[in-house]
């Protein structure tokens, strides 16, 4: 056994420094992860009833209308999220980037990211107030400009609820996307802009031929981040509508939460989580294969 002793004497320091992190990760991430996978094959209420049922949870899931409704909803969230993140924050970043006065540029940058600094729950609660049926900001505005007939209980009606959730944070600039685009623009060599000026390009041509192609790695990154984020939509929906009315705004993560904690169907909830995780994993693999190579951010 001298071999083991010698090995340890030589390497113990390297392993010793890893012990704390693996105690924490082992307890609070690895064990729960394996339990989540295991539980998805059980009928389990979290306490006394626990029975192995094989793939029954998954079979049931693929016949569950609410689950399909939730997939449809995150489809809507993802597509609209991508359209939003591709347009307004990019336009804002270009506009801020071309402000010549550096002091003003910096000030604009700081003011635009204020929503990022506010706790996200405060943002959701504020927008809940904006969308409120009675004395909500949006309805008050519509009444003030004489469009009384356009008022709605925005979050409470099935036709408007999902679009209201998407509308939160309008005009959608105050986020990470804006900062990523801006960083991308700043890394473009200033000589290129000189050339564009000499060529007599107008702002639109410059945007199409110079800025858009040169921030494409940021655009890709933003797309990936948006997809991952939207698929996991949870807190915003929980706070704003709790998935309602009916199933019109429910997301898979929120469905998991409801099944697990309101109905104590812990096994079924875990199956939902596992399917969602596999979808995300596949998307990440696709991303690593086709997109990641060109990513660069600073």
């Amino acid at each position: 056994m001298t071999n083991t002793a010698g090995f340890l004497r030589k390497h113990w320091k390297g392993y010793a420094f890893l012990i704390p992190i693996f105690i924490v990760l082992g307890t609070f991430k690895y064990i729960p992860f394996f339990n989540a996978v295991k539980m998805s094959f059980y009928d389990w209420n979290g306490a006394n009833v626990k029975e192995f049922i094989g793939l029954d949870n998954f079979v049931r899931l693929f016949h569950d209308d609410t689950f399909y409704a939730s997939l449809k909803n995150i489809g809507i969230f993802t597509v609209s999220g991508m359209l939003i993140q591709l347009t307004v924050p990019l336009i804002a970043a270009v506009l801020v980037f071309h402000v010549k006065n550096m002091k003003l540029q910096n000030m604009l940058k700081v003011w635009f990211v204020i929503p990022l600094v506010i706790p996200s729950i405060v943002i959701y609660l504020t927008w809940q107030w904006i969308f409120a049926g009675e004395y909500g900001v949006l309805n008050q505005f519509l009444e003030a400009i004489g469009l009384d007939s356009w008022t709605h209980a925005w979050l409470g009606e099935s036709k408007t609820a999902i679009w209201s959730i998407i509308f939160v944070n309008f005009p959608w600039i105050g986020g990470i996307t804006f900062l990523l685009y801006l960083a991308g623009l700043m890394s473009i060599s200033s000589e290129l802009f000189e050339v564009a000026k000499l060529d007599g390009m107008n702002a639109w041509q410059r945007f199409l031929r110079l800025e858009l192609p040169l921030v494409r790695s940021q655009v890709k990154l933003v797309m990936v981040l948006t997809i991952i984020q939207q698929i996991q939509s949870f807190e915003n929906i929980l706070v704003l509508t709790n998935g309602g009315p009916g199933d019109t705004t429910i997301s898979p993560a929120l469905y998991l939460y409801t099944k697990g904690f309101s109905y104590s169907e812990m096994g079924y909830a875990s199956a939902i989580g596992l399917v969602l995780f596999i979808i995300l994993l596949l998307l990440t693999l696709i991303n690593n294969k086709f997109v990641k190579n060109t990513d660069k951010i600073d």
């Binding site: 990760l25 307890t27 729960p32 998991l256 939460y257 904690f261 909830a269 989580g273 596992l274 995780f277």
Partner: peptide, 26 residues
């Protein structure tokens, strides 16, 4: 060494809601 590093990094892939329930039970 490399394996340990990958073991730590791959945890970033596990979304919070997936382990929400087992974490609660734990």
């Amino acid at each position: 060494k490399q394996l340990f590093f990958v073991l730590i990094l791959s945890l970033m892939m596990i979304p919070g809601y997936l382990i929400l329930i087992p974490q609660f039970l734990l």
